[in-house]
Amino acid sequence: MSEAPIWSHRFRMSDLSRGPVVVSLEADETVRAALAKHLGVRAIKSLTAEARLRPWLDGAEMGGRFEAVVEQESGISLEIFDQVVTGPLEVRLVPAGSPNAPDPEVEIELDPEAPDPPEILEGDVIDVAAYVVEHLAVEIDPFPRKPGETFEYKPPQDDDSPFAVLKRLKDDNG
């Protein structure tokens, strides 16, 4: 049995037969708290998305944008700060068994300029919120820095190379 998603907004592919649909989402406080824990950030202060779903081949295409305000801790100063995280929503979906689905037996050549192959849906439902969470997770900086912060490495004053250690031993014993 699969675990229930933290945030879900399900849309049936058959509803696209009437034409494109725009879905606007906004996560409430409870969802944002659960997502923050799930994504390993201090807090998610806001999360909104607008997705446009339209028919594509024998499946669907989702486009749009999301925006979130994520509270993070700087990896340099350990100060807490808010980071605006935005990104596009770009997903193509086809039903299982579709002739347009990628063949699992064929090796896919990775081309960063080419569109991603379509994802295969299990059933007739697109969980728009789950795709928003997936895209948000990719865009969150795993090594956050407060805006304007820079890391300046200062090597230790002592030379700890093996030769320097031997020299100090020789000087101490000599």
Rank of each mutant, 00 (worst) to 15 (best):
A96T: 00
A137G: 03
D160G: 14
E122G: 13
Y131F: 11
L57M: 13
L93I: 13
K154L: 15
A101D: 02
P115W: 01
G19F: 02
A49H: 00
E73R: 06
V41M: 04
L53R: 00
E105W: 04
I108A: 11
H9P: 10
T150I: 12
E107P: 01
P147K: 15
V106M: 07
L47G: 06
R12Y: 10
V106R: 01
G75P: 05
G148A: 13
E67C: 03
E71N: 13
S2E: 09
D158W: 14
G87I: 00
L47E: 04
G87N: 06
R54G: 02
G123R: 04
P118W: 03
E113M: 09
S46M: 06
P115S: 11
N173I: 15
E149Q: 07
T48L: 01
R12K: 12
F143H: 12
R42K: 15
L25G: 00
L47N: 04
E139M: 12
Q72G: 04
T30N: 14
P162D: 13
E149W: 04
A36K: 04
W7V: 05
V128D: 10
I80V: 15
E113S: 05
N100I: 03
P155H: 07
T86V: 06
E113K: 10
R92E: 13
A137Y: 10
Q157D: 12
R10A: 12
E134R: 06
A33L: 06
K167Y: 01
R168A: 15
A51I: 09
V94E: 03
L16P: 07
R12G: 15
S24Y: 14
Q157C: 04
V21D: 00
G123K: 14
S2D: 10
F81E: 08
G148D: 08
F143A: 14
F66V: 05
G59V: 01
L110K: 09
L136I: 03
D116C: 09
D111P: 03
A49G: 01
V106K: 08
L121K: 09
V21N: 10
G148L: 12
S17P: 07
G174F: 11
P55I: 14
S14C: 04
A36M: 08
E79S: 13
S77P: 08
M13T: 11
F11D: 10
L121T: 06
G174K: 14
R92H: 12
D172I: 14
G97P: 08
E105G: 04
N173G: 08
V165M: 00
E139Y: 11
V41T: 08
V41Q: 01
V138D: 08
D124V: 00
V138P: 03
D28A: 06
E71H: 13
D171L: 08
L166E: 03
K170H: 01
A130F: 07
V125L: 03
R12Q: 14
E61L: 12
Q72Y: 07
L169Y: 02
